[in-house]
Design a protein around this nucleic acid. Sequence first.
DNA 1: TATATATGTAATTACATTATTACATATAAG
DNA 2: CTTATATGTAATAATGTAATTACATATATA
Lengths: 110, 110
Amino acid sequence: MDQIFHALSHETRRKILDLLRDQPGQGVGVLARSFDVSRIAIMNHLAVLEKAGLVISEKDGRSRLLYLNLVPLQMIHERWSDEYGAYWAGRVTALKDLAERKTAEGGEKP
Amino acid sequence: MDQIFHALSHETRRKILDLLRDQPGQGVGVLARSFDVSRIAIMNHLAVLEKAGLVISEKDGRSRLLYLNLVPLQMIHERWSDEYGAYWAGRVTALKDLAERKTAEGGEKP
DNA sequence: TATATATGTAATTACATTATTACATATAAG
DNA sequence: CTTATATGTAATAATGTAATTACATATATA
């Protein structure tokens, strides 16, 4: 769980997931050319994503083909539906009040 | 986005969200007693959660009352439904094959 | 007012993350 | 076989995280 959220907490890694969704089976080098950091940096990000199970790779000759794996995201998505779904319907209005009071702060001490 | 996922990437912070869901309006000290790290550590975690918008707080006398705010989670939940919903239905079977091949690895070089 | 309670701030420390450059290995093509 | 291509590994530096202890501020209550 830590690993999944940590993997998602970096813009570059989320962009990698997007690119692999749109064009599955890219190699490491090709993918890296979509960014302006080094290939090694991208490889480190890929290692983080693979440990989190969000990316799967397959060796093909001298290339390593990369694929997005959405199963961990599905898991979280479903879990949130279960754990917070009811709560979202009910509680949110009460909290919205507080949130709005907070947002409106900044001109109330005359 | 980075902030939200980073906030969620620590077990202690996820547990704080759970506790605030189950018992909203707790003060910092009371909350901290549910953990075996220092109150200061919990305050740091709370700062991370507040920056991410996942926790809202309200001063009440000498206490600071804490509330869970699920709006950021809802946002992500809905965004995933939009961006990956169709993909989940279609692509997953193809990727499951690769994932299963990967999982089955570890006894195939005789 | 004095005191206990609740929260906030500062300084410090250990460790993790993110990126870099330089070098090493593996494979395809000429 | 030699060369170019694709990926992998090592060492290193800058920055960020997570935790601690010690001290400071604010507020309720005896």
